[in-house]
């Protein structure tokens, strides 16, 4: 491999880099725009000569946005609302994935078909009866509305996670499990002593994606947990952002110091605040995120 590296033409290489950098800039443009305008004061916004760099480093916007969003409470609740269902997802999807990967039972193909169908089917179709069911069970507007389906493998995007686990458990050599069986381990023991430890990459992938997807889900969170009339005390950063202008105007009325009117800078500061936790998570765990799809072998399907 080392000796046979054929040279690619300079022009080709140059154009590839140029294209990548251009597209990369387009990708980052909204984020850069967000950062730069969130730091601007009102005067900077109105000054047409200032495009990117604000005249001063102004953090006042963030302070006001955070105060109106009730940032720390929303952050804590977001973490709980994304974290707890993620753990449930890990538990249920790993067990289900193992069942699908290791055992042959009648009707397995039908089960697989239903799993794939339930991924394609829009959640709106089951949304209304589920809403009624939750309110009958009395778990509507509580975290149980997310935890309960996740515990039974029907959480948000659970079909993908089940398939990831299945794919992963299939890659573990069958001999390993058979050996453990011969050594006297039962079905469950060979599952959590042999299969689970070697599936660590799958756990990382599923945990990360599940966390991110739960964090970013606003439609179902608003319906099941936040309450459509905002009548529960659960909220997340994304939902706070969704109702940002309402929140801000109510904050403005109660604020003791004269708060400025809602403007682009404050909007962008609020947006940045709501994605900041995930961005930090991403840059800390970037390797796991980027290599996750490679390792799970979801592409083997």
């Amino acid at each position: 491999m080392m000796g046979t590296k054929d040279r690619e033409g300079f022009l080709k290489q140059f154009s590839v880099y140029a294209l990548l950098i251009c597209i990369g800039f387009i990708y980052l443009y909204p984020i850069l725009h967000m950062i730069s305008s969130s730091l601007m004061t009102l005067d900077d916004l109105l000054d047409s000569s200032i495009k990117w760099l604000p005249s001063s480093f102004n953090l006042e916007n963030f302070r006001q946005a955070a105060a109106s969003m009730d940032f720390w409470r929303a952050l804590w609740q977001s973490v709980v609302l994304a974290g707890v269902p993620t753990i449930c997802n890990l538990l249920s999807c790993s067990v289900i994935g193992y069942g699908l990967a290791r055992f042959d039972f009648p009707g397995k193909k039908i089960v697989m078909g239903i799993i794939i169908l339930s991924f394609v089917l829009p959640s709106q179709i089951t949304m209304i009866p589920t809403y009624v069911l939750y309110s009958n069970l009395g778990i509507q507007n509580t975290i149980w509305a997310f935890v309960l389906p996740a515990l039974f493998g029907q959480g948000f995007n659970a079909p993908i996670f089940i398939l990831i686990f299945r794919q992963f458990f299939r890659q573990i050599p069958k001999v390993l499990i058979e050996a453990s069986r011969i050594d006297g381990a039962g079905y469950f023991k060979s599952f959590y002593k042999v299969a689970l430890p070697s599936a660590a990459p799958a756990f990382i992938t599923v945990a990360l994606f599940s966390f991110v997807w739960y964090w970013n889900e606003s439609y179902l969170t608003e319906l099941y947990v936040h309450g459509i009339y905002g009548d529960s005390n659960w909220t997340t950063l994304v939902i706070q952002l969704d109702n940002f202008s309402d929140n801000y105007s109510s904050y403005q009325q109660t604020a003791t110091n004269a708060a400025t009117d809602l403007n682009e800078s404050i909007n962008m500061a609020g947006t940045l605040l709501s994605i900041l936790p995930l961005m930090i998570l991403y840059f800390v765990l970037q390797r796991h995120f980027v290599e996750s799809i490679d390792r799970t072998g979801i592409t083997g399907e």
């Binding site: 039972f105 799993i115 339930s118 089951t126 949304m127 069911l133 029907q154 089940i162």
Partner: peptide
């Protein structure tokens, strides 16, 4: 196999088929 799939069967019944 069915034992491992029990969570899914319950979930599919309550949160998929019934709704």
């Amino acid at each position: 196999g069915y034992l491992f799939m029990i969570p899914w069967f319950i979930g599919a019944g309550v949160f998929l088929a019934y709704p």
